[in-house]
Computed example of a mutant assay.
Amino acid sequence: MSETPASTPDRAELSCYTASLVAYLEPGASDIKDRLARSVRLSVRTDSPDGGLAFSHHARVDIDDRGRGLAYRGAQDWEAARTALDAESALHGRVLAVGNTRHLPWSPMYGTVGTPHWVVVSRHAEGQWSVSDAFEALTPHGSQTPYAGILDDRELRGALTPLGHAAPQAVSRDRHALGEEAALPPYTGYRWLELDAAPRPAAPEGTWVHGLLPALRHVADQVCADPEALARYADDIWTAARHQRFRLASVPGAQEASAAWGALPQAVRFGIASAERGRFRAGAVEKAFAQVIAMVEQLEAAEAAGAAEPQHAGARQGGAGRDV
């Protein structure tokens, strides 16, 4: 495995899914970061088939002007997977592949915890692959920094080692990683995503809470008094906070709201740690959620007032004209 420094043009707060999704789409869509920021939302499904809650953090941004979008693919044996990766790379120049953090040497979870992790792969030379991972974060397992390097067939096979199975929350994250529900191939095989004719968007199944404030309040109601639920959805709350901070980076006057979102995962981790010590500090979690909710309310009120002001001005001008 050879390695070269990975450039980081910005420090956008994205998840492992969206960081690699942006890296995959950017060669053909230079405005993808702005499009993703505009697409950020929060919706929560209350009756997920995987059990508990399911989270959707953004609308789909992968559909191109020809109506093609990404879809999961899988293969049970490595030779079939390698052939498919090679074909997709030859066709589109790159492919999104699903790695396994337990087998990614640059991951802070290397050798310990296995969870799905997207990387961008392309054929480098015979028997060699260029692999990049744009994700950057300080995680509970340690620091993840961007990676770019060359892996041979054996090393790539290891990096994409099938998980075998995943926790319900990880399955739910996989299922909604593109923004809306997608069919998943078995976790017992190698997995990747291919660009294909995008299906017509279907009405979301199940019962959803849409809108940032309603969804945020619903999550708070579920986790603030329940340390087990707090631990179960800690990664989803962390992901929501990162995407909201990414969205707010271009919103004037949103620094306090961004800071409140940044403090929320810290409070969640503190609450989990206090529960593990046998004394759950629910108050810290409740306070952090309340601060975020208050900041979102202020921003939404300011945005609503700003949108209404030109209309009022226009009405006043129109009235003056009629008086004349």
Rank of each mutant, 00 (worst) to 15 (best):
residue 277 R to V: 00
residue 30 S to M: 11
residue 274 S to F: 08
residue 75 A to Y: 09
residue 202 A to Q: 09
residue 35 R to Q: 06
residue 10 D to Y: 05
residue 118 W to F: 13
residue 193 L to V: 06
residue 163 L to G: 02
residue 125 A to F: 03
residue 193 L to P: 00
residue 206 G to D: 10
residue 298 Q to R: 12
residue 91 L to P: 12
residue 30 S to R: 09
residue 68 R to W: 01
residue 295 M to T: 05
residue 199 P to Q: 14
residue 320 A to H: 13
residue 23 A to I: 08
residue 290 A to D: 04
residue 144 Q to L: 13
residue 19 A to D: 09
residue 168 P to D: 01
residue 274 S to M: 15
residue 305 A to Y: 00
residue 297 E to N: 11
residue 112 T to A: 04
residue 273 A to N: 10
residue 284 A to P: 15
residue 243 H to T: 05
residue 19 A to Y: 06
residue 221 D to H: 11
residue 43 S to M: 12
residue 183 A to V: 09
residue 44 V to Y: 13
residue 287 K to L: 05
residue 151 L to A: 09
residue 257 A to F: 00
residue 94 R to C: 14
residue 191 R to S: 13
residue 42 L to Y: 01
residue 316 R to N: 04
residue 146 P to Q: 06
residue 122 S to G: 04
residue 226 D to Q: 15
residue 94 R to N: 04
residue 265 P to S: 04
residue 171 V to F: 12
residue 12 A to E: 08
residue 322 R to E: 01
residue 156 L to S: 01
residue 275 A to S: 13
residue 38 R to M: 03
residue 44 V to N: 11
residue 10 D to M: 04
residue 306 G to H: 11
residue 70 L to S: 15
residue 151 L to Y: 11
residue 120 V to Q: 10
residue 170 A to Q: 06
residue 49 P to V: 03
residue 129 W to N: 06
residue 97 A to K: 13
residue 236 D to W: 00
residue 319 G to P: 01
residue 69 G to E: 08
residue 191 R to I: 12
residue 245 R to T: 01
residue 243 H to V: 02
residue 74 G to C: 09
residue 126 E to K: 10
residue 73 R to V: 07
residue 276 E to W: 00
residue 134 A to K: 12
residue 91 L to G: 14
residue 199 P to V: 15
residue 160 L to V: 02
